[in-house]
Design a protein around this nucleic acid. Structure first.
Lengths: 228, 228
DNA sequence: AGCGGGAATTGATGGCGATCAAGGCGCAAT
DNA sequence: ATTGCGCCTTGATCGCCATCAATTCCCGCT
């Protein structure tokens, strides 16, 4: 399989694994396996025992929770090159804290939990990488909690659009929604209707132009100012 | 100062430090110092450079963010024995991601960041403790994001009351609000008015009885069922 | 080209919780 | 005891956003 070579290269580039020696990476690969999935396929359910964490090779995955009434809040949208479910590594009883499901067909690597934990013991640099990763995740959570608690839906949507643009972007900038609008809405904790209406309102104010899944931000700075 | 002996004992008991040797703990104490604060005192501002993280010895501290309009969302209420701001440990440019302010007079330990990072290198067990701690924090964030996104204010308040009771509690159970109602409200992302009204509604339904800061839960199971 | 079905849009309505405002209560200081 | 000052409570109103409902759009399929 060609994929092994690709994988080895991908691992070497990835944050969490780049501090490992080639020998260590090979050991890890030996204890891992790749898996294909299709859109809509359930990868794991909240509460399932976790013996792996994951590296998404390509495609798109959503991590989400459901309310008792059935509405869905997407906690994270995973894109190629990202790892997820690492937080199960250090649980006493490792179980997935969210549901995981394919959004677009793809392939992922199931990284064996115990094998990785063993490597951590040998590589302080990798420990640091894991902790830095978790720190970044925690930062993101603070931000999300803040916007959910303090800001209205319009702010969240504008904030999200701006987040899609490169940090250095200025002036007229094109961004592409990374998934269907329903999915984005579930991510932003609004209904599809509200997302649609807000995008229309922003269009009417000539702040953006929406064409399918492509959004042209007329002026990044103007939009940033507009939030406050 | 008597406090040093107390501190040494407290460190030994604490999660993050218990895996250290006595010699390591002493080194850490040497690089740390205790500090008193009063209610309302600003401990640090969001964006300040972080050279320490903290262990609260006694008193109460709030970590919070402010919206542009000035409303406050309390991200965490810290109680005696808890550490906070550890997430600055692994930032490239360590800055506090939230404001920190005393809610009740107290004392805290400022643990030197570099000293602790040095110890981590020597103690894999302590690395594990840090990672487990962060994992628990992440879990809590998922839960908070979920309740903010999917649940109404009544649910959040009931959930919070139940969280104050011991996990094993059954039947009639007394709990005490850990701070003034304004503070609780800012923690739950509701206004004081809404908190007050909701507590009254729950009282009218004979689910709880409120006396000042003491809340008697008439029947824990009934209240749990009531949420769904 | 025509069909079918899910996604997206648009409109009408209602409810939850914020806001504004006023009054009551507890408590410390004089 | 009385004053003053926050905190908490209660009431009235308003606005945002969810909900329900009806098209329309988009795209794959035959």
């Amino acid at each position: 399989m060609q994929i092994d070579g690709v994988l080895a290269r991908e691992l070497r580039r990835h944050y969490l694994f780049c501090a490992l020696s080639d020998e260590q990476r090979e050991r890890l690969l030996a204890a891992s396996r790749t898996r294909r999935f299709v859109a809509g396929e359930v990868l794991f359910r909240r509460g399932d025992a976790a013996r792996h964490f994951f590296l998404l090779h390509n495609g798109c995955v959503k991590l989400y929770r459901l309310s008792p009434e059935g509405s869905e809040k997407i906690m994270r949208l995973i894109r190629a090159g990202q790892t997820f479910a690492e937080s199960t590594l250090f649980m006493e009883v490792p179980t997935f804290p969210v549901h995981g499901e394919g959004v677009e067909d793809g392939e992922l690597v199931e990284v064996d939990r115990d094998a990785f934990l063993g490597l951590l013991r040998e590589s302080f640099a990798t420990c640091q990488a894991v902790m830095a990763q978790m720190t970044a995740r925690i930062q993101g959570h603070w931000d999300e909690i803040e916007t959910l608690a303090l800001q209205n839906s319009r702010y969240r949507i504008v904030h999200y659009l701006l987040g899609l643009a490169p940090a250095t972007a200025q002036g007229r900038t094109a961004v592409t929604l990374p998934a269907r609008k329903m999915v984005i809405a579930a991510h932003l904790a609004v209904t599809p209707e509200t997302l649609s209406r807000t995008l229309r309102a922003l269009s009417d104010e000539h702040l953006i132009e929406v064409t399918g899944e492509d959004v042209m931000i007329a002026d990044v700075e103007a939009l940033r100012r507009h939030m406050h």
